[in-house]
Design a protein around this nucleic acid. Sequence first.
RNA 1: GGGGGCGUAGCUCAAUUGGUUAGAGCAUCGGAUUGUCGAUCCGAAGGUUGCGGGUUCGAGCCCCGUCGCCCUCGCCA
Length: 595
Amino acid sequence: MQLKRTNNCGELREQDAGKQVTLTGWVNSYRDHGGVVFVDLRDRWGLTQAVFHPEHAEAYAIGRQLRNEDVAGIHGRVTARAGTAINPKMPTGHIEVIVERAELINKADAVPFSPTSHDVVNEDTRLKYRYLDLRRRPMTEALVLRHRVVKIMRDYCDQHGFLEIETPILYKSTPEGAREFLVPSRLHAGQFYALPQSPQLFKQVLMVGGMDRYMQIARCFRDEDLRADRQPEFTQLDLEMSFVEREDVIELITGLIVRLWREVLGIELPTPFKRMSWQEAMDRFGIDRPDTRFGMELADVSNWAAQSQFAVFRDAAVGGGCVKMIAVPGGGSLSRKQLDALTEEAKKLGAKGLAWIKLGGEAGAGNMGGPIAKFITPGQQQELRRLTSSGDGDLLLAVADKQEVAWRVLGEIRQLLARQLNMIPANRHDFLWIVDFPSFERDAAAGRYIARHHPFTAPLDEDLELLKTNPDKVRAKAYDIVLNGIEIGGGSIRIHQRDVQSQIFSLLGISPDEAQKKFAFLLDALRFGAPPHGGIALGLDRLIMLMLNRASIREVIAFPKTQSGSDLMTEAPSPVEPRQLQDLAIAAIKPLVKA
RNA sequence: GGGGGCGUAGCUCAAUUGGUUAGAGCAUCGGAUUGUCGAUCCGAAGGUUGCGGGUUCGAGCCCCGUCGCCCUCGCCA
């Protein structure tokens, strides 16, 4: 490389006219007019037009050879463009560089796909040639934004007294929760490390170690099936604080989010963020991460239904279940086919059916239509309209079932319809804290309690007594932060007293022996002076995805894996040499694929 | 493990009811071209229709299997 750059390809402006500059980059496009050749040179910062004239014969000869994605350097004078030569679409469109010297630094083969193409290229092709994909503007933008977000997170935490501390990637297997990736130990034949699902226990130990405030941009690993917003390895902003209560964590994270939105997106978020108990979220939206950008909230009409002549409603209402409804604004225009599809969806979600009532419409103003309309008296109808805040033209959808089923089904239908009927306003950023989660839920299969968050979550002080009498009613010092119906983070205040921790373990059916075996280090730590502490983890990939309004976290990860966990560029996972297995004292049950 | 969608030239797509030699744009290569900026014009080359099997006189199209990618349920304390 003879030419060393003096500037990048995105920064030259009219006031730079007259300067001698050197630029390096990739050929974004070339336009050969015979007597003059235009080449747009691209780097991470932008595009600059280079102009080759025959007067500089050597440079001109090189310019004519340049093709897309060649790496090239140019040296010449920045010149202001005039009149129609100005390209107002480009930040550098008021200038160009008249090339005096040029260098073809590295010729590129014809590329499988063009980074500048306006066609949407298949994702598997993009992943196989990720380095080409990364040259595309949207990918560069995503990684630049991601960098800025992480930088702000580090700065913010630093300003609030946090230490960034790395925790081990080779970790102890604790087979609770998500399936782990295992790493065989060569030095301990037959034993394994696990990759951490999260640094949860280490960060608690750091608090006992007096670090007071810890943060980490932490990689986490979960060997579960993938989704658009789930990768086997993903990144969290993980943090933990000592001598704090729930409010401290909520306030800290609110401040961070506000700063991110302000400095990265230029959006001023109103604070404090809305807050809702888990119970309220379930009652109003049927889901613990409600999307509050639109209404269509659930109404409990059980008392009304108990008086109804419609047996399905009455039986559910008086038989320990409930009847819940949503009113779909303007939903009266839905076709029979659409209603059947919704019913099908409801059944898939576990409901026995989906009752519907059309208000007004063909039945006439003030009347109702649909298969169950005949069971409802005019007086009951008035009451129903009041309970569901609905009117002519609306559609009522009802589920009569156990509360959990009604919540789930109507919660899902609500989201589904909102998307179908375009009820979700664009450019809204509805942040929401969900608090007061139940500590436990019953595992029907095993007939025992399981921790809803994790077994180290502290119960609310006023609920401590209920641990013995009524564990179902115990609420946790846990909190989730939700953005537009997507959970972007969650955390809790932890148990710092050993006796409370033991109580929880026994409630969860984890014997003292078992607890000692799995979590000895934590239990020990809690004995030797553990400060009250709590923390949170934010899903970085999801956060970036939402900030950029992308459809999948793969769009904001440099080298993501496919749905089957493959890396199409490196072709991982791959077979290994039998020798390697031998060293590790392990054998594959299925015959080894030939390496 | 279940449900759904997709797979045709390097890329993005088309191909009537199963019917002639599988087409187009972009990219590539050659030529023309002194103000373009998704340059333009002329020409050329480019195909195991993911793979395997079957049905048929005949399969890109129908059937079975398989591989890959995507969405989703289960799963993700």
